[in-house]
């Protein structure tokens, strides 16, 4: 058992990469889907608003990209992309811990951002000239996904230097 644990560094690192990509991706898929439903509703009435509602729909997509970025960074650091490296169990667990901020914050921020985006789509449907103000509200939610991305990335870079 202890031998397995000593050799499980790569497993935990891979788990971290998977969790970051998976959870942030699920959040984005739910978010983009929800905003897409609202966007389709508006387009059924006024197709000229396509450009505006598309931007709202794409806002919750970024969390998935952040998760992917963290996943690639972990895979690259442990040598799964471009050459094998030795990963200790402790490093593996640290990579896993580093993936958690973007995994959870990505999931929830994408879902809540989509709710805000849906409301924004409603605003644009009624008052297309208020697009600039309406887009700011869901964009605020993005801040917290970026903060989580920052912590995940700084942690991964720090672990690589250990």
């Amino acid at each position: 058992m202890s031998e397995f644990f000593q050799n499980s560094g790569l497993f935990f690192a891979l788990l971290g990469a998977a969790v970051a990509t998976l959870m942030a991706g699920i959040g984005s898929a739910i978010g983009v889907g929800k905003a897409g439903v609202a966007a389709s509703g508006v387009l059924a009435e006024d197709p000229s608003l396509f450009g505006k509602v598309l931007i709202f729909q794409l806002l919750p997509a970024t969390q998935g990209i952040y998760g992917l970025l963290v996943g690639i960074l972990i895979l690259s650091n442990v040598g799964l992309i471009g050459g094998v490296k030795e990963v200790t169990a402790l490093q593996g667990l640290l990579y896993f811990a580093a993936s958690l901020p973007i995994a959870f914050c990505g999931l929830y921020s994408a879902i809540y951002q989509s709710k805000c985006a849906v409301a924004g789509i409603g605003t644009v449907a009624k008052k297309p000239d208020q697009f600039g103000k309406a887009i700011l509200m869901p964009a605020m939610v993005e801040t917290y996904a970026i903060l989580a991305l920052l912590i995940s990335m700084l942690a991964i870079i720090g672990i690589a230097g250990m």
Binding site: A38, A44, V118, G122, T123, K126
Partner: peptide, 16 residues
């Protein structure tokens, strides 16, 4: 139940 689609259409209809 979620009425996102219907509400989005209603938002536009409200302008009329």
């Amino acid at each position: 139940q979620d009425y996102t689609y219907a509400v989005a259409r209603i938002r536009f209809k409200e302008t009329q």
